[in-house]
Design a binder for these strands. Structure first.
Lengths: 355, 355
DNA sequence: CTCGGCCGTCGAATCGATTCGATAGGTTGA
DNA sequence: TCAACCTATCGAATCGATTCGACGGCCGAG
């Protein structure tokens, strides 16, 4: 057991062939005689040889078969978000059959990016900024120097990155128009975190200027483009409880000043808003209309159907996977922006008559 | 851009030192003169050298800094389970600071294990069977031949694996005792999948003998050990909807033959049972008591508090991470079984009087 | 003034494979 | 029968670092 693992050289020696011939057997070359092949495979079996060492193979072929997924915060938080999970699933769906594995690169408690120390020890063919991405992330600079191509999903924008995104702004605008057409005039936004520092509460101009996430900024702009400036409350995380908390701050006041509609920047936050509304005894959509964003499956919302902008999350993941695969092969794929679709559910209705 | 990346040799040449000296600089050795160090670092900066190639480094050091996480099914299913997410989070919490990355090894549609083709291309220092693990998984055999040490969390049991688990049986037995003490005599089980083949429905002896998951088997045994043989319905997946579906089959019948308590093998399934009960107009715990397992945070269950066996999921993950780290260093850690704790909530009560 | 020791640097072997050009042996056509 | 060709196998260079033993020069001690 503690014996050193046999190498291909040992196998070749045992089979009585040259190292290069044995290698040919494993690389599936046609140019090796059936008898020889069997002899090599036989020797390998006898020695308990488990196949060519991936590291040595990578060294020569300049390819590790590993793509890094930068998820930006602790897994337990990142994966609470169904969008992140679906996205990763789409990526692996494409990469898996190609024999490429996905390496998780979570940030730790404090920083939002992965540690450069870890990054520099891991052989990456490409990296995907999956759920996050500060535009001044030091890890990004490191990847550049290493020559690791990067796909950014809703992430940082730069010329040397391939971008896969969705119509955040248009989708948000469509939701805002829907509310405007229903007569809503007092509309508020519950925003996803503008940056990962645990801040929550009303968003003022100063805070507003600190937005680090592209999708957050775009979704905000989409609403403002239709409704003008609207009050916004930031959630400390993209999670149901945070949505509820933010919504309470917005809704726990007399009807005359209370918003008649809330635009949550994600379905998760919208679920929280619905819970807050229920807790405060507000009827949806009678007293309050609520919209989300993403179109994720929230089974426990039933029978309510959330009005939201449905994005093709899994397809976005597949696109990111395809982009990474292309980059690995040395191609440079085009940026891609996927459409979102307005889904009108049962959580929006005409604005209550002004009193 | 398309220029080949500079190598350490190029940096050394530029700095006018030997390759080995340059290497010393990057390996943080004390035995290099400050002036030399600066000259090398300066040359590296000028050339845009991003640090030593991880692959080459791994080849020599026989260490890749990568641990594989076998999650057994598609990510989108695996990560719907909060237990899986928390477990992985615990693992990365330990491994991350050690500079070790976690590589996801999902199964594909059909097989439950990762493909050997993928496995054999990836440099692994160790592997963790995280949420799954067939005892006859071909991937396991492959890892053995490759000499990759394996940590099994609730997974396959074998002498050459390090096991990290919880008191599945005792926890289940405690739940069963709780129900027995409350006077329940007609108790049914909603079981997690016995194996990953999409089967759902009543579990007969034949099916029962096919159980491939240790935790499922143990939890079943725990209940039987207290209550004797009880009817069980298998869910096709560990998910809320599947729990609901299984529970409907169990509960949609006259009160005289309906179970008065349901033991769900996970909190997710228990949530489904609660939904089924609500849909059928059954009061909990008046008409029906429900228990789960895991102790995960299900915010949308509020204000109900699920009676369940709370396992230290995250600590289990940390333990698995520590075990993997130990194995990488050549140590052989002991198996570990963590305790679970009965949490009595509001979903269990005295059995309804027999009519 | 000289010798032992120490510190910083260098050479060379090594990790385990891939891959291309070369070669030996056998076949085929003229 | 011999040249021309194939084909299966082999040798050797290569990927990019790490690491250990050796070496040269500078210092202090005798």
């Amino acid at each position: 057991m503690s014996r050193p693992r046999p190498t291909l050289a040992a196998v070749a020696a045992r089979a009585g062939v040259a190292l290069s011939t044995a290698s040919l057997v494993y690389s599936g070359s046609e140019r090796v005689a059936p008898g020889t092949r069997e002899r090599v495979l036989g020797a390998a079996a006898e020695l308990g040889y488990g196949g060519p060492d991936p590291v040595a193979r990578s060294l020569r072929s300049r390819r590790s078969g590993i793509v890094g997924a930068v998820v930006g915060e602790r897994l337990m938080y990142a994966f609470r978000d169904p969008v992140a999970v679906l996205l990763l699933d789409g990526i692996t769906e494409v990469l898996g059959p190609l024999g490429v594995g996905l390496l998780l690169l979570p940030g730790d408690r404090e920083r939002s990016g992965p540690s450069v120390a870890q990054l520099s020890r891991v052989p990456l063919d490409a990296a995907v900024y999956a759920t996050c991405g500060l535009e001044d992330d030091p890890a990004l600079e490191h990847l550049r120097r290493r020559g690791v191509p990067v796909v950014a999903v809703e992430g940082p924008v730069a010329d040397d990155l391939v971008l896969v995104g969705i119509e955040d702004r248009a989708g948000s605008a469509a939701l805002a128009e829907h509310l405007r057409d229903l007569g809503h005039r007092r509309v508020a936004v519950v925003a996803m975190p503008l940056r990962l520092d645990g801040t929550r509460g009303p968003v003022d101009a100063a805070r507003r200027s600190l937005v680090h996430y592209r999708d957050v900024r775009e979704r905000l702009l989409g609403v403002e483009q239709v409704l003008g400036s609207v009050p916004a409350v930031e959630a400390a995380a993209n999670a149901v409880e945070e949505g509820e908390r933010a919504a309470r701050a917005l809704l726990d006041r007399p009807a005359a000043t209370r918003p008649t509609a809330v635009v949550a920047q994600s379905d998760l936050l919208a679920a929280g808003v619905l819970r807050a509304a229920a807790a405060l005894g507000l009827a949806v959509p009678g007293d309050l209309s609520v919209v989300g964003f993403d179109g994720v499956d929230l089974p426990w919302l039933a029978p309510a159907v959330l009005t939201t902008a449905v994005q093709p999350t899994q397809e976005k993941g597949r696109a990111a996977g395809r982009a990474a695969a292309a980059l690995i092969e040395g191609r440079r794929p085009d940026d891609l922006v996927l459409p979102v679709e307005l889904r009108v559910g049962t959580t929006t209705g005409p604005a209550p008559a002004a009193r």
